[in-house]
Each structure stands twice: as C-alpha cells, then as structure tokens.
Nucleic acid binder design. Sequence first.
RNA 1: GCGGGUGUAGCUCAGCUGGUUAGAGCGUCUGUUUGUGGCACAGAAGGCCGUGAGUUCAAACCUCAUCACUCGCCCCA
Length: 436
Amino acid sequence: MALSTQPYKGARDFYPEDKRLQKYMFSVMRRIAEQYGYEEYDAPILEPIELYLAKTGEEIVNEQTYTFLDRGGRQVAIRPEMTPSVSRMVAGKRQELSYPLRWYSIPNLWRYERPQRGRLREHWQLNVDMFGVDNLLAEAEIIQVADGILKAVGATHDMYTIKINSRKLMDYIFKEYLQLDGVQTHTISKLIDRKEKMPHEAFVAEVDAVFTPMQREAGASNKLMGLLRTKTIEHMPEVIREQTAALEVYHLIHTLKQNHITNVKFDMGIMRGFDYYTGIVFEIFDEDPENNRSMLGGGRYDGLVGLFGVEPVPTVGFGFGDVTLENFMRGHNLMPTLRPETDVYVIVIGDVFNQAQKLVYEMREMGANVAIDLTGAKPDKQIKTAVKKGIHYVMFIGERDLAEEQYELKNLITGRAERHSAARIVSIIKDYREGD
RNA sequence: GCGGGUGUAGCUCAGCUGGUUAGAGCGUCUGUUUGUGGCACAGAAGGCCGUGAGUUCAAACCUCAUCACUCGCCCCA
C-alpha cells in the first residue's frame, strides 16, 4: 500500500500559490489591526485541557477538541480557539500591563469534527481583542477593525451585514420579560439560532412546546413571536427599550453609523455559541446568497480573565477565520492576482555560470529577488521554466552580455525586451514590484 | 452521530441497457539543429477503472462489503 499524498482530513496543504493567497490575507489583517494600534502576540498551540474545561464550559471540549496524554501523563489539548489563551496571558501579567490593551494574533486552531463547506478541522483565525475598557467605545472600535479588513480586501457595504445583539438584553427578555427558567432559556436560544433553517410553522410549534400551560395562557409565545418580528430596538416594547442593555445596542449602532458603517442592524437571532459572552455580541454575515452565513463573530466577555484568580478585566474581541474570508472573497470576485516572490529568473547561456552567479549575487545585495537557472538547458527550456512559475521577468546572461555589461531584460507578460546594466535592471524590477 | 453524492491517466471528465487490445481535452516529456517562452506541427510516456468478494461464458458497468473523498443535517466556528 503506497503512502497517501493527501493531507490529513480537514487540513490543507499550502502549495506556493495557496500560501501566497494566505500571506495576502494575513498581510491585510495585520495591516488593518496595526493601523488601529493593535500589537501582535502569540501563544503555544498546546494548552492543558483544564483551560478549556474551565471556561468554554461546554461539551464542545470533549467532542470537538483534539486531546492527548503527554509523556508525563498530563491531559493536553490542541487549541480550538485563542480566547482562553489570551485571557491566560493577560491574567498572568494583570498588574504590569498598561490598559487599554490592544492585541491581535493569527493562530492556527484545530477542532475535531466532520469537515464541510467553510469549516475545516484546521484553520487560521485572526483574533483581535481589547482589554480594559468597559464602555461601548471598545465594541465600536473592534467592529471598525473587522469592517476595515473587509473594506481592505475590496468589499463594499452591500456585500455583508453586521448584526448586533446583546447577551444581557436576551437574559432580561428570557428571564424577566418571558419568565423562563434556565432550561427553557437554553432551549429557546438554540431554537432562535436555528430559526432561519426551519419552516416557520415548525419553529412556532417547537417554541410552543417549550412553554408551560401557564406561560402559554399568559401569552408568552405571542410575546416572543412579536419580539422576533421586531427588526429594530426602537420598535421593542417600552419595558425592554428602557433596559440598559437595549440602550447599549441602540447607542452602538448609532455610533457605528456615525463612523460611516451603515450596514449594521440589530438582530435577536445572534446568540454566539460560547457561554463566556457577557454583553454585546455581533456577527458579520455574507450577503452572497450562495454563501449566506456568518463569517466572523465576537463580543464582550468580561469574565474570562477573572477566572485566573485576578481582578477581572473587561474585554471585547472577535475572531475571523481564513476559510470564511477566502469564501467571501471568492464569492464576491475579490480575489487578488498574486505574484511570485521571485522578481526575475536568470537564463544562463553557454558556459558562464560562475560569472553569472557573481552578478546575480550583487543584484540580490541590491534588493532584487533573483533565481538563477541551474540546469544548463537550452534557453527556450529555461524560459519555459520561468513562465510556468509565473515569474514576470527573465534576464539573459551570456558571454556577449558579460563582455558588454549590458543584459537583456525581458518582461514575459508584455513580451518587451530591453538591454540595461545590472543596476538598472534591479531598479526597474523593484519599481515594478512596488508598482501596481 | 444521521443522510445524500462520487471514486476510470498528473488534472477535468467520457465510457449507451455488461461484449474484443479502456478514450478525450488539458498537463508532462521528446523533437521541428543548438541566444528567446506563450502558437503550430510530429511523436512519446502515463490506468490491476479505489480495494475485496460475489453473480455471469464474459464486469469499469450488476450485487454485497470495505476504504477514501465530498456535500448536507446535528452541533457550532
């Protein structure tokens, strides 16, 4: 049985052309995060399993996390998300860090599940978090960063929608307004999450089944349906509208609109899976009908850092996966044309390799990325190699050229060729690289 | 965990209701005389038809099993 050449299920190989796309996406993420003053950090891919048991708090840990025993008999997990790790780091230096902290990272994460469109077992996810700010300016800024990244890859506001909700608001609605107990709240939340995926009648029936006869008597079902039909905070019943949580949602949306982010709206359906969220939660949805899904999500989680036995630190953050970003870009025709890292491929003609090599060395010192052909094959073969690699320039070095110190530089895209000194060639190449 | 789809050349696939030596396009390689690619022409390599068993005179094709990939669902990024 031959060894399989396929990558592990749910993981990807990145051939140079794939890696180039990933590098592009990461560079956009880094650029925007850093524009907003966020600093990059990192953490180990392995964590003790307790880190996740303590906070993610769900069975997700057991079912969807890669775990193993290390040689010392410790239960270890491959990180399925970054949030617990950052929280650990912040807690570890709680006293000496200067707040607000603006941090970001692009970790690769693993989760054990069956791969499907947009969800693999291994993916990379930009994590952007702000620690130490307990007011809405933090939420507003973090959403601006997310929005900024989408704009930076060429997206326009009609391509996606930012949906906002509040865990606190939902708590009030479930516990006070609808008088639900813990179990009911949980079931209803899950149902609301799935609302769009089922026929309306089925949804109504399932919701109805959750309520007790008394609650039904009191019209709980109608109240809930009424709320779900309400598309804006302003149109909510007054008791709800005057809750602090509701005012927060209102103000956040207002602030974002003032900052030219117009595609924001309130959506009660946004719940987020993790239990650690404590306030505002948000998700950004792709408006492409072929890919109408959440591609990014986050919110406020004020309790995590405190779990490490230090004073709590209010925190807002989001995660943005590379797979979802790529699907988004493909769906909206935002894929960039990417060039190889190599600027020029040197064609060696005749027995001049050593001299050519010396010249190439100097060109590299001057800042060009130069690959030299080592095969000694005929020029047409060498050119084909460059073409196939997608390199844009080819440079010919033969005896004549070395004698005259003038070399032919050919642009393989336009077919144009000119003769120049090596230094001039380097500057042409560099201009080209920095250009369009 | 549940359900659907697909496994034929490196890639994308065709192979009608089972019938001789299994096909195409693209790609790869060689050449069209050695300092210039994309085009054209000529040629070549490359397949135990995912694997195992069964039915049949005969299986890429039918049946069963198995593995892999894939898309949904559950769950949730």
